[in-house]
Amino acid sequence: MTQTRTIIIECLRFHPETDEAPYYQSYEVPFTAEMSVLEGLQYIKDHLDGTLTFRWSCRMAICGSCGCMVNNEPVLSCQTFLRDYHPSRIRVEPLAHFPILRDLTIDQTDFLAKLESVHPYLIPSADDDPGDQPRNQTPDQIQDYLGYAQCINCLLCYAACPQYGLNEAFTGPAALALLHRYNADSRDAGKAQRMDVINAEEGVWGCTLVGECSEVCPKHVDPARAINQNKIVSTQDYFLRFLKPRGRR
């Protein structure tokens, strides 16, 4: 069997019904080499303190539930391992920049509203009628958007984005990357409907290309690139609209 060691996990605690302000609580957790931070939290919940509250589900880095700050870095707790921190203690906190619901769980309603605002679904052109056949799309055409379709909505990029931290109206990395995913899809013709979101102050212009979003993304989505590409799109749209004939958008 793998050797068992112990590590101190320090968790941010906050219960809105009883606490005025967040505080930290430490737990001593035995762990083996393959144990993740999530499994450490589960150990606490099961054996030490049933009141510690956090979200998790798939434990294989695809559902996007378990994002949190570990030693100030936004990570998925299921694929962050205790062995990499031992013998130091680790500090686990809810994702930065979001309101705390309780302990390590954050309120994600603001993000969900932003996700909805980008029209994140295929809008084919009016004359595109594939009938009962799948449309054609070559592997090269798929590559144009597939990277941006990998987002698991884990919100690490929002926790890493200083601009979102300063101004929560900013549409933010994941939602804008998703917007670009549809715009870049050869089957989509809905770009015009999404221009408002892009062009707004809170759209791509809320970004100053810090690039932390792409750094922390566990799925290598590169939202920073998606946003910067759309700054060019928005700039073209800004100036070229004067050249377009009247009656057309």
Binding site: P124, P130, D132, Q133, P134, R135, N136, P139, D185
Partner: peptide, 22 residues
Amino acid sequence: TRELTQLEHWGCPWSRQEDGGI
């Protein structure tokens, strides 16, 4: 097949052959 095609129409990124077919 009808349902999987419907998902294609909704934008699901099915893996393709070189010619663009499913």
